[in-house]
Structures are given as C-alpha cells and as structure tokens.
Computed example of a mutant assay.
Amino acid sequence: MARLSGRRRSTAAWGSAAMASFAIIAATPFLLDGLAPHGMDWNRLSDISQTYGALSVLFSAAALVGVVLSIAHQARQTRIQNVESHRSAHRELTALTLSDPDFLLCWEPPNTPMTRERWRQLLVSNLIVSMWSSDFTLNLFDEHALRALLQDYFRGEIGRAYWANSGPSWHRLTESDPDSRMRAFVRVADRAFAAAVADGPPVPAAAYFTPPPPATPPHAP
C-alpha cells in the first residue's frame, strides 16, 4: 500500500507539473504584452512569439509523454504486484493441500485416472507451470525461452503426465481469456509437449536420480 501511495503521489506530481507548465505557457503572451516597452517592434515580437509557441508545443508534448509513461509504468508495477499476490496465495493453498491427503478431495477430480501420490506430484507441477505462465504473460521472457523450458520439462515423466492431464483445463481456461499472452502460452506448451512426445518416451521418475553408493563397512580391528 505504501508503494501504491508513493506511485499515486508521483502521478499527481507529474500532472501538477504539466498543468503548471500549460498555465505558464498560456500566460506568457499576456505577460510580454504588459512588460513590453512603448514603441516595441511588434512584428519582430510576433516572429519571436511564433518560435516560442512552437517550442512550447514541444515542451508540452514532452511533459504529456512523461505523464503517460509514468502512468504506464505504475500500471505495470501494479500488475506485477497483483500477480505476485496471486502466486503467494496459490503456494499457500497448495502447501495446505499437501499437508493432509484428505484435502486433495477439495480440488477438481483428475482428468485422467491416477494414484493419490501422482495427483500430489501434479499439484506441485501446477505450481511450476503456473509460475512460468505468469512470467511469460509479464514479458519476463519470450516464446523461444518458454519453449526451451517446457521442452526440457516435458522430457520427464511427471511434467509430461501433468500436461497430459491438465492441458485440456488450460485450454478451457484460456478460451475466453482476453489476454493474448495466455493463449500464446498454451499454444507454445502444446507444441513443446508434442515435440517431447515425438522424441520418444519420457524419462521415468525412478530414473531421475542415481542411487547412492553402498556404504563402506568399517574395517575390523
């Protein structure tokens, strides 16, 4: 809230500065008329005034652009804050669900039959993929980087099982979403998933890590 208040004060300051600039520009010809000495060459003054008018228009446009850029920056920062708040709530809800197996029943049923343990794994996978979708919609990386992330992710059994189960839900979620970046995210994910499947079977979860070496028995005295 303090940051938002600070940004609002910044916007108000920009707006006040722009309005003050407009007022000074509008009053300048009258001030010149009042301060001009008797017998001044008004034709020359008119030429100067026209030049000044052109410069004042440029200055006013620059001030207006500054206000617009400031507002756009604040809107982006507010959106980032909203996304981070949503992420935090999502993490807390997922942690609560994983803390008690009975809470798994509070979510929608899986789109494909699976064990309770696999459903728990897919909940964590959903956190990962949702994080990437948020980063992509915020333009933190482009489609090329997203495709590389997802193709690598879908090499694994859990990642591939996640999209096989939840891909249809992402499609339903983004069908009427006005955010073109979200629709692009699903499109890139579909292509990355198809490419991973075309490369062959996934890496089994049991093969992710090598077993630790056997313990060496202590030497007998």
Results as ranks from 00 to 15, higher is better:
F103K: 12
A195S: 14
H171C: 09
L150N: 05
R187A: 14
P37M: 07
A206T: 10
P218G: 09
S169N: 12
R187I: 08
T210Y: 07
I80A: 14
P204C: 01
G159W: 00
P168M: 07
A18T: 03
P211E: 06
G66E: 07
E117S: 14
D177E: 01
T137F: 01
L64P: 02
D33L: 11
E157L: 02
D179Q: 06
P110N: 07
T78P: 01
T137V: 08
P202A: 12
G15N: 12
S134W: 11
T78R: 15
R44E: 05
R79S: 10
S10C: 11
S134I: 04
G66F: 00
P29I: 00
D199S: 15
S16R: 12
P201Y: 01
Y153R: 03
S56L: 11
A12H: 09
Q151Y: 13
A184I: 06
Y162N: 02
A205V: 09
F59W: 10
S176D: 13
Q121E: 10
S85K: 10
P211Y: 04
R116V: 11
R172T: 12
S56Y: 04
I158W: 02
W119G: 07
V188K: 00
L127Y: 04
A198T: 01
H219D: 15
A72S: 08
T115N: 02
S130N: 08
L55Q: 09
P202E: 07
T137D: 07
S85Q: 10
A20V: 08
S176N: 14
S85L: 15
R183L: 03
L31K: 02
R7K: 08
P211W: 01
L32H: 09
I48V: 08
N111R: 09
S166M: 14
L69P: 02
Y162K: 00
S49K: 05
P214S: 06
A145C: 06
R155K: 07
